[in-house]
Design a protein around this nucleic acid. Sequence first.
DNA 1: CTGAAAGCGCTTACAG
DNA 2: CTGAAAGCGCTTACAG
Lengths: 326, 326
Amino acid sequence: MSPPTRERVLQAIQRLNYKPNAIARQFVQQRTTILGVLLGDLSNPYYAHMAQVVERAAFGFGYTTMFSNIEGAEEMAVSGVDALLGHRVAGIVFLAFVARRSQVNDALQRAGVPIVFLGLSESWGDSVGPRDAEGGRLATDHLIGLRHRRIAYVRTPLVERTGDRSRFRGYRTAMLRAGLEPLPAFVWEPGTERMRIARRITSLDAALSAPDAPTALFASNDIGAIALIEACELAGLAVPRDISVIGFDDITIARLQRISLTTIAQPLHFQAERAVSLLLERIADPRIQPRHVRVPVALKVRGSTGPPAGARRRARSASTSAYTKR
Amino acid sequence: MSPPTRERVLQAIQRLNYKPNAIARQFVQQRTTILGVLLGDLSNPYYAHMAQVVERAAFGFGYTTMFSNIEGAEEMAVSGVDALLGHRVAGIVFLAFVARRSQVNDALQRAGVPIVFLGLSESWGDSVGPRDAEGGRLATDHLIGLRHRRIAYVRTPLVERTGDRSRFRGYRTAMLRAGLEPLPAFVWEPGTERMRIARRITSLDAALSAPDAPTALFASNDIGAIALIEACELAGLAVPRDISVIGFDDITIARLQRISLTTIAQPLHFQAERAVSLLLERIADPRIQPRHVRVPVALKVRGSTGPPAGARRRARSASTSAYTKR
DNA sequence: CTGAAAGCGCTTACAG
DNA sequence: CTGAAAGCGCTTACAG
């Protein structure tokens, strides 16, 4: 094409404000540059942040993101998935979590759409997530290092099952290695008063103030940990004086002075990049075997953990905690 | 169609797992059921929550959402907008904020795409947002009611300009009505030490501990308010004993015991619904005049505000604040 | 190398 | 009411 002609075409593009019709292109090419993102609760800062970095990573690879919230009723969730499949997304980033045998899982598997699980794992697709078991060990070792001996793992419904189990496994490993007895998982839903320990159902207060109550709690995630701190303080236990609490995720607010949560950090940005690139590889060649990437985690020591009461000087433990005094 | 034939067709749909190709439909109909959402920082819980409710509202109306983060470099932002326009989104929900005269604004206006501004306003499109000025008055009246007389409005870069100005206006109105002198806006960026007051640049510490320093601060939004509380306490001022802080938005973490932020609440869910329905009306008929919907706000009194030091009994003010003692 | 034609999977307007 | 044809705006394979 001659330079002057070229120039005139370019001008016409400018003048008419022409934008190539991606719909038409996608239609004829039979493939889109849209990545579906299946989400749960965006008010959970962990997911909000992860969603953001996924969008950025996808954009960096030339893809746009179509979000769909799939928490709540199964049928709503399925129609959210159908909407994404109807729009023929090139692949799906699975960021929420659902029951193992759910209609959502079935619909996804049946559709055969390329998928990557982020922050959790599922055998039939690629996955990227933190080294949960290692994180569980790090958290527990930190508490053991502070001389805690009665340490409990507190499971909240806010963390996905595979991650939860691995974190608990890490806790057990660390306890056993230190010659301590692992307790059964404490199961607690933030906002409630009920605590389940193995088959026994008791109250949160009772579980925390019994003579043999744990002196340190490892919550399965930060939101749960923060809720747990609030619950402890409501029950009259000062953190970390009377009881230590450690979380998992290192969400932004964990760093606030007033929260100052000791926790296990995982690199969100890096995980999102990896997840999107795994997904794009699978889109390019759907036959490759599922790959499972685990990324390193790191302990962040802050103010919510300390030595158990018995290990301190009397004078110190007589004073009231800064946090309970309001 | 005869019932048995109908049955066989339905079965074939099941068997082949047929999903109508939305791309083809959108292509031929020359309109999509995708709403573009322009976002800023999703780690700001206010935006994350708003984004979530927008997605839910859109889904409820049969639309999917395509997200694009437009914070950062202008050219990145413009290509994010172009991606949405290229996908021929039916309309755009503008959730982030950019400079008034930005390339993003120009691109959007030039494209003539139906748009609704959420949480901010812009003359050339529909908008939905809180009654900012009323919120500013409510916040200021609350502080005045506690007997504060030196009250400052603290502007942070986290809130959009139109909202910020209206909140400040509300502050001024309340001060003048109470016969108090409004101070010029304090301009502060969380994480920094610099404070700008009118033309004067000073340090945060100096601004807060001068003899005529304000005894109460009204921050333009919650994230700013929480950062401000941290900064005050780092500077040795207890909240609310030495200084009161009120925010705006009522983000989820404001309710945490440890944060307990007094603030102005705005109904996010309702705003998202209204925004999406305005947008759909405009998509149906692009000629209607821009409408600007303002929704009610409400004061939430929590623990970050109290009477000024001078108005209390000596005994009380002699004790250390719960928060600074760590 | 250049240009015209076919076709992606739907919807819609129209002929029968 | 039913069924066949045209066409949406691109890309791609192919003829010239």
